[in-house]
Design a binder for these strands. Structure first.
Lengths: 122, 122
DNA sequence: ATTATTGTATTACTTTATTAATACAATAGA
DNA sequence: TCTATTGTATTAATAAAGTAATACAATAAT
């Protein structure tokens, strides 16, 4: 795992995003045990508390869970992962539409701009 | 103008967004003079410096400009307004697409989800 | 020329967020 | 039972952000 951190945002947030992306991308498999807080912290060269914070935040998403003294695991509940993904997608969409509408753009405008963007980038 | 502020985000940002929205929505007309920093601050019941910060931030967008001792004005440059609007839209779209792709969603997925959202809300 | 009004700069206070040091608690494993 | 390993809680130190008090500077209006 490439722990490329900068100081543009809080470290714990960057870590949280990195791990989350890896889970969603399937780098970590369902049920897999994560390294311990201390090991992850050493690996990423951050204070253990910082890693702890990142992980406990991540936990709120339901992507990982804790077993008191055994460690942390990626959820085996694949449907929960799907659910979460859909929920995030819905939120993203609603936020996006709200922002675009505040700019005074119609649905047709939005469709047009999206297709234009896609045409340009590929 | 309804200065409904809460403490979920910095006051100066909320003010900036409110004014920006009003400009884009046409509540403030091109060339129109804004009330003075102190008057706006009184109206919104905030410290003048807070209003000053909101306005100077807003200025960076080019939507308003300052004449040293006369006050602040909405830009007459309508094309600048259009330009800005298009730029913001482009940024919003690119950010949105980046986020959706990180979730592993294809273009077709995105099209489908957007139409679904629209169908549901109207 | 004087004054009132404008935006701005400087400085300090306060609060919040972030990171770190350290101690605690639970239990798996030997 | 004992020990090493796990996550967690508490507290403190530091840094950053936000807000406010006050003084300054420029000029339009009189």
């Amino acid at each position: 795992m490439a722990w490329t951190l900068d100081d543009s945002r809080p470290i714990y947030l960057q870590i949280e995003d990195l791990i989350k992306a890896n889970i969603i991308a399937g780098v970590y498999q369902p049920g897999q045990k994560l390294p311990s807080v201390r090991d992850l912290a050493a690996e990423a060269a951050v204070n253990p508390n910082t890693m702890q914070k990142a992980l406990s935040e991540l936990e709120r998403s339901g992507l990982v869970y804790t077993q008191r003294t055994s460690g942390r695991f990626i959820t085996e509940d694949v449907s929960k992962m799907t659910e979460l993904k859909e929920q995030i997608a819905r939120e993203q969409i609603q936020l996006f539409l709200k922002n675009m509408e505040q700019l005074g753009l119609s649905r047709e405008d939005i469709r047009r701009l999206l297709e234009k963007e896609w045409k340009e980038e590929s």
